[in-house]
Design a protein around this nucleic acid. Sequence first.
DNA 1: ATATTTAATCGTAATATTGCAATGTATTAA
DNA 2: TTAATACATTGCAATATTACGATTAAATAT
Lengths: 110, 110
Amino acid sequence: MGLAKTEIFTDEQNKIALYAKVFGHPARVAILQHLFRIDTCVCGDLVNEIGLAQPTISQHLKELKTLGLIKGNVEGTSVCYCIHKENWTHMKKVMLEFLDQDLQQQGDCC
Amino acid sequence: MGLAKTEIFTDEQNKIALYAKVFGHPARVAILQHLFRIDTCVCGDLVNEIGLAQPTISQHLKELKTLGLIKGNVEGTSVCYCIHKENWTHMKKVMLEFLDQDLQQQGDCC
DNA sequence: ATATTTAATCGTAATATTGCAATGTATTAA
DNA sequence: TTAATACATTGCAATATTACGATTAAATAT
């Protein structure tokens, strides 16, 4: 198969999985960290920065953009990318709720 | 390929990606949520709960166990699973640092 | 107009993931 | 001992992901 049975899960579960999936590759983690560190739009130097071929970086950027976590502005012949802050905040809310599940429970099994 | 070039990334980036990857499937999200909700060890009913075949669940459980996020205790003919709280806390620390990157920056591009 | 630059897209090879039927293994029940 | 139960493992088919060379598209520079 290779095809997740998304229909048997809740929208929330699928949403968490989608966000997590995009963080599930170190190149995308590195791209996001770079965008945060630079703290401004990044035009062009991502290929040199990360160390993968240009089409590969372009593909990873596309996935981040599809999920709405980054924005891309065309600036002349190059494209400037930066974090989409509102969407990042929303993603954080969803993921934090998932990660903070342990705060709800006080059982002491195992 | 289909093979991530982990050697060109930092240990931290690879670690984040590994954690995220395991959350990148709704079945594993659902399993973890169930374990938290039950708030005690779960013996057996995961297959009925999630709605995937037994070998499929077993495989997902294995991945969660390999990453250390759950524990499994053999209890007679069944196996009881629960969250590995210490490791969950450590995972949270790593992921929160990644998710909270936006707090560091105050730039206002785009 | 032509060349240059930058990034997206296409095509494709290699590998990974998902899902499950069939089978194996270990423990308890009869 | 034999059967039943619960779960793990194996094997395999379908699909997804990763990576990159080649090419295309769009803007600027000459």
